[in-house]
Design a protein around this nucleic acid. Structure first.
Lengths: 128, 128
DNA sequence: CTACATCTTTGAGCGCGCTCAAAGTCAAGG
DNA sequence: CCTTGACTTTGAGCGCGCTCAAAGATGTAG
């Protein structure tokens, strides 16, 4: 996380004005770091800034917002589950395509028939 | 996939000029659809357009580019694996945080002690 | 014949999430 | 005293991946 990003997060309200040293420099407490870590983790899993802003806002309001905050996290967790599924599908598809390329390379090396089993853009459905 | 996106992909060379009906309208063949499906799958897993362009370019050049194309796919597959790991970590973290929220809500309902076990921004390391 | 919908083209615009530039302040080292 | 360097501020700029607007051609229904 760059200083630029930290400033940006501060500007858009993701983090509250943080403590300063005597010279005016920012000093991040451990609590700040934990919160930043959490933010980073959410961003890394594609939570939009707007949603993080909403969450941060509720957090400022205290425990009474627990339910709403929990809903946000549950929704995001579901989104993550969906992403994992997508990624796993793609991963499997790539395994097939890579194997196919290995076959092609084999054919080229042995100077075999160049026309048999042409390359196919296998879809997820028919991942041959 | 919107028509806008299809046009865009054509413009940037991800798909070759496609067949037309007599009136000039585009007609996508099954091969076209398979390729688009593949592109969609790669985009959905965060392959940058530039990399897809590179791949498409190599594809136009035929089997002799097999090795390089395979490398691209292998790299992307590794990237996907990394993403899955990240997502799984976040998923686990959220499970903990959600459980914590449920506890808080419980405390609120029974009017219990409001100060015990304050909320914590659990990190990945210490996901309590 | 007249609407209306659906495609075509080109080029511009936009939302997101940073990322950087410019100018200034302060603290320590030589 | 002077330089170096790390921070500060504000506001502008950018790369990505679409997304849309405007104007025009063509086909189908009433």
């Amino acid at each position: 996380m760059t200083t630029h990003t930290l400033r940006y997060y501060e500007r858009v309200g993701l983090i509250q004005p943080v403590g300063r040293a005597r010279n005016g420099h920012r000093r991040y407490s451990e609590a700040d770091e934990a919160w930043l870590n959490f933010l980073h983790c959410m961003r890394a899993t594609n939570m939009p800034i707007r949603e993080m802003q909403r969450y941060a806002e509720l957090r400022e309001l205290g425990d009474s917002t627990s339910l709403e905050r929990r809903k946000i996290l549950e929704d995001h967790q579901a989104a993550i589950a969906g992403q994992i599924t997508e990624l796993q599908k793609a991963h499997a598809l790539l395994t097939h395509k890579i194997a196919n390329y290995k076959k092609i390379e084999q054919r080229i090396r042995i100077g075999g028939p160049q026309t048999a089993e042409p390359e196919v853009d296998c879809t997820l459905a028919s991942a041959s």
